[in-house]
Design a protein around this nucleic acid. Structure first.
Lengths: 187, 187
DNA sequence: TACATATTGGAGTGTACACTCAATTTCTGC
DNA sequence: GCAGAAATTGAGTGTACACTCCAATATGTA
């Protein structure tokens, strides 16, 4: 299972193809044939490196869930504006991963296993936003900070969906309105 | 083509089954066999009444897109609190349709035809919310009202996704925070 | 009641799909 | 450069699917 250099390279080609296809045709739309064509690889090679189609798909899916959150170094110190900025950048950036992530959320509505993963990463994110609120406005009680964080993320997710469906939508302009007046003034 | 009473009844049974299945297993998960089993109908009967599986599915999908909006009689007079309330009721109600609608939005990320439909209904909704803002706070400029409406709907959509994935999530508690202080006080 | 037409079930058809397999080539450590 | 293991190919396999067809039956009309 990928001990030689060529094997590892092929693995990467396959994952790159899968990533691309997931964002273009969706989780249910990817076929093995499409992946192997795009990666220029025979079916046998694919199965030499992955146990199943879903094996490759889930690898990309995990990657997408991780990628929503900006670099973990910032945890405990990033400002609200930073977090919002990073989220907007993620959604409007050129990477196919944002599209995959939002599709996943939709898929979570019928697949409990996916819902669990999405929710787990969502809660982590709410924590991080709530911490930033606390830091920015220390006088508000923790539950209030958490509620604001939940609302903020819900709005960002909703804006992200619109942005990815409508290329002319200016997500950033709307997103900055979510920041408290103090943070906006500081920009 | 359903000219006799029994045909119309069968049609309804098929649509009910499709509705149920769409919310449970998702658009890609519905199979003709599942629909015909659930509706207690042979494949031949199905095709006597619908041109294709997608024909039935799209009928339910259209219905789901319509159903997001509360009764059109209110247009031009409903308050923000009413609108938020109706949206929350739609999302947290027992109807399978909310789940179908949100799945659709996810699907819109890869299917331009669906994206167009979803966006169209989204814009109508933003209008309606913006009007309500105007009525509630006449001093704010129209663009500002529209921006607030857009944010509010984004947040409601995001909260709806969380609510449908996590049954223990209290959507209403979060949603009311979206209302301006004046509206909240009025409750 | 008799007729035309709608409705029904379900075996049968074609197709697209994920996955297997075995023969062949390529790789890498020694 | 040789041996053993990994990598590669693509034709072949089984299956699940949407959809067809038609003989049998039910429905509505006059």
């Amino acid at each position: 299972m990928a001990r030689y250099r060529v094997g590892l390279e092929t693995r990467e080609r396959i994952l790159a193809a899968t990533r691309r296809l997931l964002s273009e045709v969706g989780i249910e739309g990817v076929t093995l044939k499409a992946i192997t064509n795009q990666a220029r690889v025979g079916a046998g090679s694919f199965y030499n490196l992955f146990d199943s189609k879903d094996d490759a798909v889930f690898e990309v899916v995990r990657e997408a869930i991780e990628a929503v959150d900006p670099d973990p170094a910032g945890v405990g110190s990033d400002s609200l504006a930073d977090l919002v900025d990073a989220f907007v950048a993620f959604m409007t950036g050129s990477s196919p991963i944002a599209r995959i992530y939002l599709q996943l959320a939709g898929r979570g509505l019928t697949d409990p296993a996916i819902a669990a993963r999405v929710l787990r990463s969502h809660r982590r994110r709410v924590e991080r936003f709530a911490d930033a609120w606390q830091r920015e406005e220390p006088q508000i009680p923790p539950e209030e900070a958490e509620r604001r964080a939940e609302l903020m993320l819900a709005a960002l997710t909703g804006l992200g969906m619109t942005a990815l469906m409508d290329p002319s939508f200016d997500m950033r302009r709307h997103a900055v309105e979510l920041l408290p007046a103090s943070a906006t003034a500081a920009r």
